[in-house]
Design a protein around this nucleic acid. Structure first.
Length: 480
DNA sequence: ATGTTC
């Protein structure tokens, strides 16, 4: 029997793989899916989530979001929590792109002003915002300067003039995870990171000019200062080569220490170390340093893009109406307190392709958003809508305070490129304004290669994990 | 995702 056949439908959108379904599975796995998304669920993704449920110190349940797909060891869209005392930390369950995340900036511009000049504006953004694999920015940091970035995160960028002090309040963890340890980051990672700060990268990463296209919740939109026809800027990027190298380095450390800690695994890609061990603490310190690099990266990218828009229209910052709505991580590990069987426990929450979605009045929701809940930003893929939701109370019991992160791939990169070869890029993109350094990335990232993100956000909305607030449509997209 | 098969 396949694992998919072992899934039990518990209620609309909730599918359970009971504990003990696979050898050594200590906790159940919950999949949050519509019937259509269930059809797309890969057997290997179910296997990966079940494998993680065998790891030492795993707590309560593994939760899988509707945008699930197979990843390295642990599925993208997966949430796992482990006990800080008895449990492990798993680099593969956080992901290669540490603190890959999203930033949304509001402006006072309206679409009628931007739409007619969108191609010219995007060419200007292409000139000013570095993108592409291995691209480098204007900054070239010494090891000492980079170590400062790794500790200060977004604040470092603000101090260098990339943005404003008040931005920091609207970033998850104020844009700097405490306890980052730059001494645990390898020289190779430093070398890869020294020239890449303030660059977009490749793959599904982008910088986009959008218009607020539909409002689902008037009252919450008003609190956020969002209205139909308003132009927004979205940044989707991460920790670039530096975070990638941290993951590579500590997967090796984890593999090399498995025997020492008596950890046996169903899949070597889940190589991990006890959280409280020296190896676990070194990875956690390095992971937080990489996360802070990503916060600084998005701070710079958001500022550079907004500044380009501002100059293009000849506006002051005040007239542009630059305002950071929120910035969040969707690939990260964090120590958080959660209620498990009526008891508050300190847990290492692994979110891989999953967004934190704390409800109204949670202590980590910024004061301005306290009564509405934490903004949850869901980036669309090329040519697709992006969404803004807010975290809801049920996320705390259903997913350790987490929601989905995006659409998830439907078509392999090679299949996408084949489609572009057959049909031609112009036809496939039908009128979308997409600028890029090279042609290769766009071909792999065409809209047809991704699942429908609207369906994904509908599931978390229906479940009461996060509430739909607004939808944004792209006016122009910068890709790597 | 990624100095994209270091």
């Amino acid at each position: 029997m396949s694992l998919k056949e072992a899934l039990q439908k518990k209620s609309p959108y909730v599918y359970l793989l009971p504990e003990g379904t696979v050898q050594g599975q200590k906790v159940p796995v919950y999949f949050y899916l519509s019937e259509r998304l269930l059809e797309l669920l890969e057997e290997d993704a179910i296997r990966q989530a079940a494998n993680a449920a065998t790891l030492p110190g795993v707590v309560k349940a593994i939760y899988v979001m509707p945008d699930v797909h197979v990843g390295y060891g642990f599925p993208v869209g997966g949430v796992m929590a482990t006990d800080t005392k008895e449990g492990i930390i798993s680099p593969g369950s956080i992901g290669y792109d540490i603190n890959c995340g999203v930033r949304l900036i509001a402006t006072s511009l309206t679409a009628d002003k931007v739409y007619p000049v969108r191609e010219k504006l995007m060419q200007e953004i292409l000139r000013n915002v570095p993108a592409g694999v291995g691209s480098t920015g204007k900054l070239k940091l010494s090891k000492k300067e980079l170590a400062e970035v790794l500790v200060k995160g977004a604040r470092w960028a603000v101090e260098r003039g990339f943005g404003f002090e008040e931005d920091l309040q609207h970033i998850e963890s104020e844009g700097a995870l405490p306890g980052a340890d730059p001494s645990k980051v390898s020289n190779t990672a430093y070398e890869r990171g020294s020239g890449e700060l303030g660059t977009v990268g490749s793959g599904n990463h982008f910088v986009e000019i959008q218009v607020v296209d539909e409002i689902y919740d008037e009252e919450i939109s008003e609190t956020l200062g969002l209205y139909e026809g308003q132009v927004t800027i979205m940044v989707h990027s991460g920790s670039r080569g530096l975070g990638h190298q941290v993951c590579v380095d500590y997967l090796k450390v984890a593999k090399d220490s498995l025997a020492k800690y008596g950890i046996s695994l169903p899949d070597m890609q889940l190589a991990c170390m006890p959280f409280s061990s020296p190896e676990g603490q070194s990875y956690f310190g390095a992971m937080k340093a990489a996360a802070n690099y990503a916060f600084a990266n998005r701070q710079i990218l958001g500022y550079l893009t907004a500044d380009t828009v501002r100059r293009f229209f000849g506006l002051s910052w005040e007239d542009l109406g630059y305002r950071l709505i929120y910035d969040l991580a969707h690939n990260i590990g964090k120590v958080e307190k959660h209620r498990v069987n009526g008891k508050v426990m300190e847990l290492v929450v692994h979110r891989k392709g999953a967004t934190r979605a704390f409800p109204p009045f949670h202590g980590e929701v910024p004061p301005a958003y306290r009564s509405i809940g934490q903004p949850v930003l869901i980036p669309g893929d090329v040519g697709r809508y992006s969404f803004l939701l807010v975290g809801q109370e049920r996320s705390m019991e259903m997913s350790f305070g987490s929601a989905c992160h995006g659409a998830g791939r439907l078509m392999s990169r090679s299949k996408a490129k084949e489609l572009v070869r057959r049909e031609g890029l112009e036809k496939v993109l039908e009128g979308l304004v997409v600028v890029a350094k090279g042609k290769g990335t766009i071909a792999e990232e065409i809209p047809q290669a991704y699942k429908d993100v609207s369906e994904v956000v509908r599931v978390v909305h229906e479940l009461g994990i996060a509430k739909l607030v607004a939808r944004m449509r792209p006016l122009g997209t910068l890709k790597g």
